[in-house]
Every structure is written in C-alpha cells, then in structure tokens.
Amino acid sequence: MTIITRRTALKIGGAGLALPLLGSRAFAQDEPLKIGFVNVGPRDDNGWTYGHYVGMQALEEEFGDRIETTFVENVAEGPDCERVLRELAQQGHKLIFATSFGFGDYVIRVAREFPDVIFEHATGYQRSENVGTYNARFHEGRAVIGTIAGHMTETNLIGYIGSFPIPEVNMGINAFTLAAQKVNPDIEVRVVWLSTWNDPAREADAARALIDQGCDILVQHTDGPAALQVAEERGIIGGFGQGADMSAFAPNAHLSAIIDIWGPHYIAATQKVLDGTWESGDSWPGLAEGEVVIGDYNEKIPADVVEAAEAVRLGIIDGSIDPFTGPIVDNTGTERVAEGETIDDAGLWAMDWYVQGVQS
C-alpha cells in the first residue's frame, strides 16, 4: 500500500498526457492489479475518507499480494483531481476509485484518455464504457437518526451543518427532517452551508452559531468530528457521527452514527476486474445490504427512543418503511409527494428542494 498526500503527489509531477491504450479489460494475473484511490480529505478525518481507507484495508486483506494499492489524500475538487487521476493511470493503475462528488467531470475526462483503465466514481452520476458509479443510501440512515432527534430535542430546533446543496445532501436533510417531524411536528431544522467537505475550524464555528440560536441537537454532512466536539464542550443533548463512529471524540454528545461500509463494494468491483467481467453500471445499496450501518446507541438514549429508532431501521430494511412516503410538502408550501406515494430514485437524484420546516 502506498499513501500519497497532496504534497508528495505534487512532487511526483506530471509526465505529459498519455496516449490512449487499447486492449481487453481482462487482467492477466502475472503481476499485481494496481488500484488507486483519490480522496478529498485525509485518511484520519475520522469520517468520510477514513471510511474509504477502512474499505481499502478490507480489500487488501481479501486479495493480499494479488493487488497493489495507492491511496491519495487531500485532493481538491478541481484541476488537481484531474492531474492525480491522470498520473495514477499513467503509473499503471488499472482500477481507480474517485471518492468525492466533485471529481465527476474530471473522471469522465481522464477516462476518455485511458480506455483500458476502469474508473469508479463514488456519489457520482456520470457513466461511460469504462466509468461506473457507486454510492450508499445515506438518507436511510438519516431517517433513523432523525427519529432519535425528534424524540430527544427539547427546544425543537435542530442544527444541520451541510457541505454543498447537492441531491445527496438534500436527500439527507429531508429524510432526517421528515423522520423527526413524524415524532414531533413542531421541529425546525436550520441548515448552515459551508461549501466544503472538511474544514474543522469552520465546522466548529457553524456548530457554535447553531447552538447560540437554540439548537440542542446537531447533525452534519461534513467529514470530521469538530461539530461533535463543540457539542460535547457546550453540553447540549448531542449529535451524530457522519461516515464513521466518532464517539471517541465526544463520548457524551455522540448519540449514534451513520457508518459507511465500503469494503464489500471494493472487493466485488476488484474481483470483477480480475475476472474480466466488470461492466459499467451503478451501485446504490443501503441499510438492507449492510453498506449503511447505524452505530451503537449512546446509553443516555431512553430505551423507548432506541426502540423507535430500531423500528425505523428494521422497517427500511424489510421494505415496510420508505423515508419519502407522502404526503410531503416543501418549505414553500407546495405539495411534492401525494399521500401514499413515494419518490423514485430518479426523483431523489433530482432533489433540489427542502421539506417544510427546513430553513436553508
């Protein structure tokens, strides 16, 4: 395994544009399959990128010396990403995972130059013959933690720290709010947008501002534990880990977590590449498949609240509960989903609106 930070990646430098390579995608196993991971944050962010790092470790354990991995950290969503993707392809990586939404255009661009390299883009939507996409139904987990928040808030004000207003994040905000309001219809969710995935100082500042407004529970769709640490310091009811269990950073405030389990997908995709059976497609599992997992419940959560959260989790798994079952009205008063109807996947990926009770 090779770990490459942004600084060491810059030292490597570009070797110019590679000419397209032709040939079969079946991989001859007389040498290790080189697999690259391109990440927007550091592996020790204790959240999103850490989850992918754990997934890569599971991959290494499964295949041993049949593969060789490179994990590139702190790659900005811009031209820097394009350079890193191209360099990995030039260095002989035949399977490259790009793990942030904003990498999408660059994945497509570089993939055209290297048709014998397979690219998979996490949380993306653009595909081609050698580009696939994969994701997890994080919004299902948001419905579970929203149920907890609905029961436990005392001020009816919940703070939500958002990264970017993209469909994936919007789904989470709406699923969380709908679940919380099923318990307590008076709940209001206040969203602060940071326009970044990982900036501990700004996450902490946003947490303080939301608490000062009266929010007694914090939710985040950013990658580190800074907001939870502020919740711990300020003594509010608590918050939830994102991407990984963050309880070590806020043992009292950490109520539970949405944990991403990427290992099975990485193992399956790698096996297909080794077998020569990989085909472009989209993977979007959730709670039922075990790619989204709810972390341990804090002992301070009452037993009846845990029971309610588990009822939602198990209902989503067995299909009896859909977080987006109508009637659903947005925060302008417009009905978005009629009673008894649900939003299909296409509608989820077009979600650019917020439900009633969300201030964004």
Rank of each mutant, 00 (worst) to 15 (best):
G13L: 13
L314F: 04
L287Q: 14
D275A: 05
P79W: 13
V355E: 12
G347V: 05
E31I: 07
P185L: 01
V110L: 02
F101K: 05
T123K: 13
Y106E: 06
P327W: 02
K11A: 15
E233Y: 09
D186K: 06
W193I: 10
E307F: 00
E154G: 11
L348V: 04
A143K: 13
E307C: 08
A311N: 12
H121R: 06
E87T: 04
F164E: 15
F101T: 06
E299G: 00
I217S: 13
V54G: 03
I4R: 09
I173F: 06
R202L: 14
H221T: 11
L59C: 05
A18V: 05
L33I: 05
T332C: 13
D304K: 00
I258C: 14
S280D: 03
D344I: 03
E129R: 11
Q126H: 10
A244Y: 06
D44H: 00
Y53M: 03
Y106G: 08
G141W: 11
G241V: 04
F27A: 07
V305D: 02
G92A: 14
D199Q: 12
L95G: 12
T5H: 08
Q271H: 01
Q229H: 02
V358I: 08
G326A: 06
T69E: 05
E68P: 11
A111K: 09
H121F: 10
G41V: 05
W262T: 11
Y297N: 05
D296T: 12
I161M: 09
E335S: 10
Q91W: 01
S256Y: 06
R208H: 12
G102H: 07
D352T: 11
G235T: 00
F176I: 12
L19W: 12
